[in-house]
Nucleic acid binder design. Structure first.
Length: 558
RNA sequence: GGGCUUGUGGCUUAGCCAGGAUAUAGCGUCGGGCUUCUAACCCGAAUGCCGGGGGUUCGAAUCCCUCCAGGCCCGCCA
């Protein structure tokens, strides 16, 4: 609805001004949409912009009125206000069960996210990747794309060799109820500690890497089982955050099936390729890179970058759009990968990067055992949420309070991460993570629960008739915001910025709360009551749709 | 040293790529509101040389240059 009206305004302005770009701007409190076209024309025609604006308004007003759009000017600004028809249609559309779903597309999308090394639990840095990635997966699906969500599993790199060495030499017992990722990280931390004390064991890691490369059966099994154990734990963590991947793709796949050798052959044919004995690297200085992009080690074993090239060709064969979510520390290798794929005539992936999450005391380190695990964060948040529910709803039984607390906690964690734009580096803050007030998921979930509660009461009082007549300013403001939801979904997938949806849904809850405060719903009478209940239902549905794209449960009661 | 990125009230943050009307919101502070549809809420107040300087423009938080500060990267790790 909103997008349709923007289209109408654009074509009216184009006709009247003959401008290619009609310079639309946010109308703020003045209008639903505004144009600053008069400034541009003033320069060309050497006339007062306010005068030009006035002329334009006179020209397009009659036609705009046919759509119920009111056009006016304030100085040089041309303002458009959408009328009753727009508001009615907006609310009607927002009640559709699949509101916000965009037309089905055939373009296949692969989104690779999280892909943390299986050497330990996901920590609060990793899950920024997870939340951004999973929200994009959900947004693309909402936007009508077939999406495959993938986790690229490092099952043969140096970090994994260290884990495997630990498993082989430390003989730890897995404690009762210990998650696989927690069990594995103990080996990883200790193996690293030992290596620091006795650097000579580094040679043993190298030997294991040569053995896995060569396919030595015992080593293959050792690596495979360790990775599997850790990945099981990681999957549990992801599931607890409402995240599932369609596929876990193992790095060894591309070593064993020969595709890595194949792509390396193509890369070696490039003029940038250089050798030093067995070692091979690309000189990408002409492309603006200062360092060597190493693709073969001198001991003949392969590197991550080479397997990653093969993986991306594999993905390209299975999709039309390939999107990677990467932390800021991977920016350089991501750019080198894109450049190299372009050089061999292949489509590079689109890369979404996000800046670092650190702790107040500094960077996190799995190796050093310095991190706050995602499990720990979720558990703590659940505990806090449970206490809160118990205070607010003492009459509910424990199972019900637990259910609400879980949904609130997962929502709070996801929202806290997704609400910040990806290019900001952040410092993890317990106080903020555990805040359930405004600008949080519980705030939005609460608005949804209230809407449900009003509708439930209305049902028990005999229901209501659909009615789409609105004039009150709180009703109109809320209805107009509802109309923007599909455009927000569209923007999220074109700009690859999920935080826009977080901002949208928070504003929506704000507007609902103000409406709720000033406009009595159940106590209104006749058609006003019907129209307000209809609006509450539209709002309930839109909140629910938006929360679902954010991977947050829309609770009916809390 | 080079590259990327961020800098917006005490703290956190939107807006920046596609320049326009009094710069968005939260936390915190101060003052109000539960006999009224769930107070995880609402209303009001105070708080800003939009990091500094220069430039482009009728107009700059937004574009360009420069400096300063933080983060990340520059490995035959991933």
């Amino acid at each position: 609805m909103y997008r349709k009206y923007i289209g109408i305004v654009t074509s009216l302005l184009k006709e009247a001004t003959a401008l290619e770009d009609v310079l639309l701007a946010d109308g703020g409190e003045h209008a639903d949409i505004a144009s600053t076209a008069a400034f541009a024309l003033a320069k060309r025609e050497k006339k007062n912009p306010a005068l030009i604006a006035k002329e334009i308004v006179e020209t397009i007003s009659p036609k705009a009125a046919e759509y119920g759009i009111e056009v006016s000017c304030k100085g040089p600004y041309i303002n458009f206000v959408f009328g009753e028809q727009f508001v009615s249609d907006a609310v009607r559309a927002a009640r559709s069960p699949d509101y916000g779903t965009l037309p089905e597309k055939t373009e296949r999308v692969i989104i690779e996210h999280t892909s943390a090394n299986p050497n330990g639990p996901l920590h609060v840095g990793h899950i920024r990747n997870t939340v951004i990635g999973d929200t994009l997966v959900r947004a693309f699906r909402k936007a009508g794309y077939p999406v495959d969500a993938q986790y690229y599993l490092n099952d043969m790199g140096r970090q994994i060799a260290i884990v495997a060495w630990g498993v082989k030499n430390l003989h730890y017992e897995r404690t009762a109820g210990e998650k696989g990722d927690e069990f594995i990280v103990r080996h990883y931390v200790e193996a690293n500690r030992i290596a620091k004390e006795k650097p000579e064991i580094e040679a043993e890691f190298d030997l294991m890497m040569e053995k896995i490369e060569a396919g030595d059966p015992e080593t293959v099994k050792l690596f495979h089982d360790a990775v599997e154990t850790c990945a099981e734990g990681i999957k549990e963590t992801l599931a607890s955050m409402n995240v599932t991947h369609d596929r876990f793709v193992r790095e060894t796949t591309f070593l064993r099936d020969g595709s890595m050798e194949e792509v390396l052959g193509r890369v070696e044919a490039l003029p940038n390729a250089q050798h030093e004995d067995k070692m091979m690297f690309l000189d990408l200085s002409e492309q603006g890179f200062g360092n060597r992009y190493v693709l073969r080690r001198s001991n003949g074993t392969s590197v991550y970058a080479a397997r990653d090239l093969a993986f991306h060709l594999w993905k390209n064969a299975r999709c039309d759009r390939s999107i990677d979510i990467l932390g800021a520390d991977h920016k350089l290798i991501g750019a080198q990968l894109q450049t190299t794929l372009s050089l061999i005539g292949e489509r590079p992936p689109e890369i979404v990067t996000f800046e670092f999450v650190s702790l107040p005391e500094g960077s996190m380190s799995t190796r050093g055992g310095v991190f706050i695990s995602a499990d720990e964060l979720i558990a703590e948040t659940k505990k806090r949420a449970f206490d809160e529910v118990t205070i607010r709803r003492p009459e509910l039984d424990e199972a019900e309070r637990q259910k609400i607390a879980n949904a609130v906690a997962v929502g709070a964690v996801r929202y806290d991460i997704v609400k910040v734009s990806a290019e900001k580096s952040t410092v993890f803050d317990w106080k903020e993570a555990l805040d359930f007030e405004r600008q949080s998921a519980p705030y939005v979930q609460y608005a949804h629960a209230r809407a449900c509660s009003i509708l439930e009461k209305a049902r028990s009082e005999g229901g209501f008739k659909e009615n789409y007549t609105y004039s009150d300013s709180y009703e109109v403001a809320l209805a107009k915001h509802l109309s923007r939801f599909p455009a927000v979904i569209e923007k999220v997938v074109t700009e690859l910025r999920p935080h826009l949806l977080a901002v949208y849904v928070r504003d929506l809850a704000d507007l609902f709360n103000s409406f709720y405060r000033f406009d009595p719903v159940l106590k209104a009478e006749g058609s006003v009551r019907d129209a307000r209940l209809t609006l509450v239902d539209a709002c309930r549905n839109t909140l629910s749709q938006a929360l679902s794209v954010l991977g947050i449960e829309a609770l009916e009661s809390m």
